[in-house]
Simulated assay, not measured.
Amino acid sequence: MIGKEILDSEPIPAAKVKAILEDFSENNELNYEQNITLNHVSRFRQFSLEDTEKIVKELEGIIKTKYAVRVVDLIPEDLADLRLIFAKEQIPIKKEDMEEILKILDKYDTLE
């Protein structure tokens, strides 16, 4: 796009995208892309926005933010699912770290 420059980029979880679009849609009409995005993020199981932010903070002690957001959005249920998330990544992650990630997710999953 001519005249547009990306100044900053950061990953945000689907729960936050959903909250932003729902707030925006209260006073404005969503365009096609925004409507498709809202439908997409509404279809999948996810944690509340507050829990999502807490989980990402906890996971940042183990993995980078972009991976923490991906894990929170996909909510892996076991080591096999978690391994699939990191399969193409060039980051070394130990089995103990993956087990810790699953424990953190399980802790918040029981509160739902």
Rank of each mutant, 00 (worst) to 15 (best):
M1Q: 11
I2R: 15
I2V: 08
K4W: 08
D8P: 02
D8L: 09
S9C: 09
S9L: 12
E10Q: 12
E10R: 14
E10N: 10
P11N: 06
I12M: 14
P13R: 02
A14I: 00
A19N: 04
L21C: 03
E22D: 06
D23V: 05
F24W: 10
S25Y: 09
S25V: 07
N27C: 05
N28F: 14
N28M: 10
Q34S: 13
N35L: 07
N39R: 14
V41I: 11
F47Q: 03
E50M: 09
D51P: 02
D51E: 12
I55Y: 00
I55P: 00
E60L: 05
K66E: 15
V69N: 00
R70V: 06
P76A: 05
P76Y: 04
E77D: 14
A80M: 02
D81C: 05
L84D: 15
A87W: 01
K88A: 08
K88S: 10
E89M: 10
Q90C: 05
P92R: 13
P92S: 13
I93F: 00
I93N: 00
K94V: 02
M98F: 00
E100A: 12
I101G: 01
L102I: 09
K103F: 00
K107A: 07
K107D: 12
Y108K: 06
Y108A: 03
T110G: 07
T110R: 14
